[in-house]
Computed example of a mutant assay.
Amino acid sequence: MFSFKQFTIHQDRTAMKVCTDACVLGAYADVSGGRILDIGTGTGLLALMAAQRNREARVDAVEVDAAAFGQAVENVAASPFGAHVDVIHRRIQDFGADGKRYDRILTNPPFYTNHLRSPDAAVNRALHTDELPFQELIDAVVRLLSPIGQWWVLLPPYETETLSELAQNQGLNPFRTLSLRHDARKPIFRLITGLSFQPSEHQEEQLTIYEPDGRTYTTFFRDLLRDFYLIF
């Protein structure tokens, strides 16, 4: 269980647990607009963070894994934002036949390709690209994103480069990147990228989570997560 200031995430039945980089995505991504989509919601974390930040939006949270779907439904129902978030049990490849478009899409997708598999099918589904290859994810975003919308995605550096190249082939261009480091001596371990159909200058920022002592959170991190983390 992970308790935030305004909601609690139970995660005993989900393969993808709450992690710092996902929380940064939920706090950093632009979630303005009336319709928000969370692809692969897992516990419902990103959907609930978006609903807390934008009380006027309708948030659709899509999840393919049955156990994770059930847990997300429970987490949303127990939160103050249940009336604003719909959790849907479906493959994103099959979602959205009604032609609805979203102002913002959030994704913390699986990215392992040739890594050793777990005996747990849910873990493989959450971490490996077998059931949601990057090209199929991009196809879904192209179909579901508003022409003036934004897609925010969290990936390691190499996978970000791969996905960005594929996305640009379909007219989605990176306009902002946030690089995440544990501390100033460590390499970049995740990138949060905003993509859009609209041409725009690419802006880059960097977030270091800890001060050089490896224990004290930086001001940037504290300010970003202040509305969510109980320790701030």
Rank of each mutant, 00 (worst) to 15 (best):
S79K: 02
V85G: 01
V87N: 03
I88E: 02
H89E: 02
R91I: 01
I92Q: 02
I92F: 00
D94I: 07
F95N: 03
A97P: 03
A97W: 06
D98V: 12
K100P: 03
R104Q: 05
I105P: 09
I105Y: 06
L106W: 13
P109E: 00
P110F: 05
P110Q: 03
P110A: 07
F111V: 14
Y112F: 15
Y112I: 13
H115A: 15
H115E: 14
R117V: 14
S118I: 03
P119M: 09
D120N: 14
A126M: 09
A126T: 05
A126Y: 02
H128T: 12
D130T: 08
L132M: 09
L132N: 06
P133E: 04
F134C: 11
Q135D: 15
Q135A: 10
E136P: 06
A140L: 07
V141S: 08
R143F: 10
L145I: 07
S146M: 09
S146H: 14
G149D: 11
V153P: 05
P156H: 12
P156V: 14
Y158L: 13
E159Y: 09
T162W: 10
L163K: 04
L163T: 00
S164W: 00
Q168K: 13
Q170L: 09
G171W: 00
L172Q: 05
L172I: 05
N173Y: 15
F175G: 04
F175Q: 08
T177K: 09
S179W: 06
R181I: 13
R181H: 15
D183I: 07
I188Y: 12
I188G: 00
F189L: 11
F189R: 04
R190E: 08
I192N: 03
T193V: 15
G194L: 06
S196K: 05
S196V: 13
S196M: 07
F197Q: 12
P199I: 02
S200Y: 08
H202M: 08
E204M: 10
E205T: 15
